[in-house]
Amino acid sequence: MSRPYAEVIGDPIAQSKSPAIHGYWIGRLGLDAEYRACHVTGAGLADYLAARREDPDWRGCNVTMPHKQAVIPYLDRLDPLARKIGAVNTIIRESDGTLSGYNTDAGGFLEPLRPLLAQSHLFRMARVIGTGGAARAIVTALAAENVVIVLAGRNPDKARGLLEELDPGGEHHSVDLALFGEPTDFSFDDREGCFDLIVNASALGMAGQPPLSFDLSHAPPGSIVYDIVTHPLETDLLRRAREAGFRTLDGLNMLIGQAAEAFIRFFGEAPPRDDGDARLRGILGA
């Protein structure tokens, strides 16, 4: 007897933690459902979606690198947020067989920051590293929270273009990533009442990728340092930031947060997060 299922697609896909996350929640809720991982290449994307469109048991999929923008032409509908971001990380098969694209990365990223963002601040600034699909979601999310963004990339012109596309009225800045790798003697003003955030929204520092060169002299006092990399979970950036006394947020925050939004769309129930994700984090860290 068939049963409903969702899955995650990407190239590569073996490293994905999504099956462990969704599988844990399915088990906790006792759902008769399944969540899988499926290796899909760029060349196989069209055939994959065409086949799944015809499968009534398929609830949809999460989309990981490098397909978050490539899937868009094959979808029937884009959620307004996904359209604005220009990237899709969740596809839902509607009851009539049409495919809708969503982006849950933005909400997942903001989730651990929401208590702070609910407060009033004199000024909000984020230094964000990266210009890929995840950075697009993060820039969009932060701009909507009235955060001034300094976006760093290996190509500053690409960073500038991304800022102008995603928040054309914002007073943001683009810089060469190399700038953050060199120490600065800049004297930060009084940060009382300010919200300061450092975000690695790139794959730099991930296992198998080049290291991220970021000198912590660029982090204002009281900054939160947030790295979306999940392998390793404690990146060099987070370790150095913690040792320097900064508050840190690891990549599981965004990963679990975005998965929770997708889970509701796949299976129609909220995932069990009553312990603050402690048991799930234990499984993912094992």
Rank of each mutant, 00 (worst) to 15 (best):
M1H: 14
R3C: 07
E7M: 08
G10F: 04
D11G: 01
I13T: 00
A14S: 11
Q15H: 15
Q15E: 14
S16A: 09
K17M: 12
S18Q: 00
S18F: 00
A20D: 15
W25Y: 02
A33D: 02
A37F: 10
A43T: 14
D47T: 15
D57S: 15
G60V: 01
H67E: 06
I72H: 11
P73R: 03
L75F: 05
D76W: 04
R77T: 15
P80F: 12
L81A: 14
R83E: 15
K84N: 13
V88D: 06
I92P: 07
E94L: 14
D96Q: 09
L99V: 02
D105F: 01
A106E: 10
A106N: 12
M125E: 15
A126L: 03
R127W: 11
V128T: 11
T131S: 05
A135S: 15
R136Q: 15
I138P: 04
L142F: 09
L142Q: 13
N146L: 09
V147T: 13
V148L: 14
V150K: 03
V150N: 08
G153P: 00
G153F: 00
R154E: 08
K158C: 04
A159G: 07
L162F: 12
G169D: 15
H172F: 09
H172W: 11
V175L: 15
L177P: 02
A178V: 05
G181Q: 02
P183A: 07
P183R: 04
P183I: 03
F186H: 05
F188D: 03
G193N: 04
A203N: 03
L204W: 09
L204G: 10
G205W: 05
M206T: 13
A207E: 11
P211V: 15
S213E: 13
D215A: 09
S217Q: 10
H218N: 03
P220M: 13
G222D: 12
Y226P: 00
I228A: 05
H231D: 15
D236N: 10
L237M: 03
L238D: 01
A241M: 12
A244G: 04
G245F: 06
G245A: 06
R247C: 09
R247E: 12
L249D: 07
L252Y: 14
L252N: 06
L252G: 03
N253G: 07
I256V: 03
G257Q: 04
Q258R: 02
F263T: 05
I264T: 14
F267S: 01
P271K: 03
R273Y: 00
R273K: 03
G276E: 09
D277K: 00
D277N: 11
L280M: 08
R281P: 02
L284Y: 08
